[in-house]
């Protein structure tokens, strides 16, 4: 885009109509898209009737308050939300560290280093990616059981292993990013006597902050969003539940009536950090897509 030249235009009725239609259309769509979000936020603050009931026949609650949030953290006898929160946090931190190391290592290797089995690895990663993700869930469970990781405290280790273990497959985004860093930088460093490892840590990494941030955040988010593996691994061991299984349980028939507004409160609490992360990364998602296409 070069300079913008402003040209004064005459009032054009056709253009005015088109623009009005477009803006009305966008407003209507926005309402549709924001309605559920707004509804949940309102429900999470609904405290009349003790916050009980899964619905009301009116949109705006009659009484607003923080009671649902307080009860979510204080009434822990049946569904212990604070503990679930801590569980998820611990698992997420470890998963994040391991996955980030794995993803960046594999992506860098695939992008920069040339070795014999590279093509084979790329092909195999693509083929394995076509299998339904949790097809292997039963098998993974058996492996973890054989290793003795499915009972007690070790369930947390099992979850970390499951989330982080296979993360070396998800290297495409980071590889795409590394591909865009000019190779001449590497060559210059190599001529100056740097080892390849130094090129990786001292040349490429400092230039890759966006993709590092992206990888850290996405792998941190994983355990907050997954509930299939967590559910299979925890089974009935409630003390190791993660937030997502907890929230899912609150909507089960036996809890729905009492817990619905607390579910909404929990949903809002989980969504705030995730949404913040996502909106911060929004630009990056966009750039990643167009960047990957450009090559």
């Amino acid at each position: 885009m070069s300079k913008k030249i402003k040209v004064k235009k005459k009032f054009n009725p056709r253009r005015f109509v088109t623009n009005s239609v477009v803006h009305v259309f966008l407003t209507v769509l926005s309402v549709i898209w924001l309605f559920p979000v707004l509804w949940v936020i309102l429900q999470s603050f609904r405290v009349e009737n003790n916050g009980y009931g899964s619905y009301t026949t009116y949109f705006f609650p009659k009484e607003l308050g923080f009671k649902n949030y307080i009860r979510l953290f204080t009434e822990t006898d049946i569904l212990n939300f604070p503990q679930m929160f801590m569980n998820t946090l611990i698992i997420a931190i470890f998963t994040c560290i391991i996955s980030t190391l794995f993803v960046l290592s594999v992506a860098y290797t695939m992008s920069r280093l040339r070795f014999k089995l590279r093509k084979t690895y790329l092909n195999l990663a693509m083929i394995m990616g076509l299998f339904p993700g949790f097809m292997s869930m039963v098998a993974t469970y058996q492996i973890l059981k054989t290793l003795g990781l499915t009972e007690g405290e070790l369930v947390r280790v099992a979850m970390i292993l499951v989330y982080a273990g296979g993360s070396g497959m998800g290297f495409y985004m980071a590889k795409g990013f590394f591909d865009t860093i000019p190779k001449s930088l590497d060559e210059a460093a190599l001529i100056d006597g740097a080892t390849k490892f130094q090129v990786f840590t001292k040349v490429t990494m400092p230039l890759s902050k966006p993709i590092i941030v992206y990888t850290v955040l996405t792998s941190f988010m994983g355990p907050w969003l997954d509930f299939i593996f967590a559910k299979v691994l925890c089974r009935t061991q409630k003390e190791y539940y993660t937030v997502s299984i907890g929230l899912w349980n609150m909507l089960e028939k036996e809890y729905l009536y009492k817990y619905f507004t607390r579910f909404c409160a929990g949903a809002v609490l989980v969504s705030i950090p995730i949404a913040t992360i996502f909106i911060l990364m929004q630009k990056f998602y966009q750039d990643g897509m167009s960047g990957a296409v450009k090559g």
Partner: peptide, 15 residues
């Protein structure tokens, strides 16, 4: 529009 996808998918789907 981004706000609606920024919410964890399982939350918005359950809602």
């Amino acid at each position: 529009f981004v706000l609606s996808i920024a919410i964890p998918q399982f939350v918005s789907l359950l809602i």
